[in-house]
Write a protein that binds this DNA or RNA. Structure first.
Lengths: 133, 133
DNA sequence: GTGTTTGCAAAGTGTTTGCAATTTA
DNA sequence: TAAATTGCAAACACTTTGCAAACAC
């Protein structure tokens, strides 16, 4: 789908920076990026965009359901273009992150949600050591 | 076990601040605390300790294997007195965290560790909405 | 006595925000 | 033209660090 339409169906105006950043990220691959990654990626592609705008844009993409925020590490936030239910394999040594498809893992024995509460997500994080990625 | 001996068996000198902070945390209950929680807890108990020392002490406890660091949220680090293998139920609205015993959950279908890599941990995080705790 | 610990203030890092200028519908 | 977006710099929150004084062994 064209970036512009994708933004619009998600309720976001198709502005130049959103189109540019979206163009870098929504290319069909599953991408795990930090704001800094995007900033560098943009610069390398000749796109001028401030870091603040990168943050704002990524946050808007998350709110609009175009990306997922992943917390693995206190000092950087990963943004994931794969918004389907899935899990993560994280190599702590080098920060490399791989997806584990949601359907390949089964979690059994989850506790019941207390009354009034709802399960928002079940995430499995497999942390690895050793720098093979 | 006495705090002093516990610190010493973990290879830490039994200094006043470590004894004081350890005394607040290692009371047999499973506790999830942030550095700020500990700082407040200490003040309430009449223990004078700087926030820097709270951070240093918690990090030393983690390195010594007396606590576990839990990452759920980019902007605060939780420290857990439960060092056994277990999982977490996290109420995002109010930051409340509950343990799920490791043996009650089974994760099936985990991918193989690539050669040279080793699984350090498998964490399941169940995120809840709704402010029932 | 020697090396570790502690507190303070300062530095550091990743992220958000206020505001003026610009752009979009 | 009214409302949203963008960039910049400043603000922010959490965490770590450098250094001098105090302390443990």
């Amino acid at each position: 789908m064209k970036i512009e339409s994708r933004l619009q169906s998600a309720g976001l105006r198709a502005t130049p920076k959103r189109i540019a950043i979206g163009g870098l990220l929504f290319d069909g691959c599953d991408r795990h990026v930090t704001a800094d990654d995007v900033s560098i990626l943009a610069r390398e592609s000749g796109i001028r965009v401030s870091l603040a705008t990168v943050y704002n844009t990524l946050n808007q993409f998350v709110s609009a359901g175009l990306m997922k925020r992943i917390t693995l590490d206190t000092d950087r936030t990963y943004f994931d273009t794969n918004v389907s239910e899935h899990h993560h394999l994280f190599f702590e040594e080098n920060g490399v992150l791989h997806d584990i498809p949601g359907h390949s893992i089964r979690v059994e024995g989850l506790p019941e949600a207390p009354n009034g509460a709802k399960v928002r997500s079940v995430e499995v994080i497999v942390r690895m050591t050793g720098d093979k990625q």
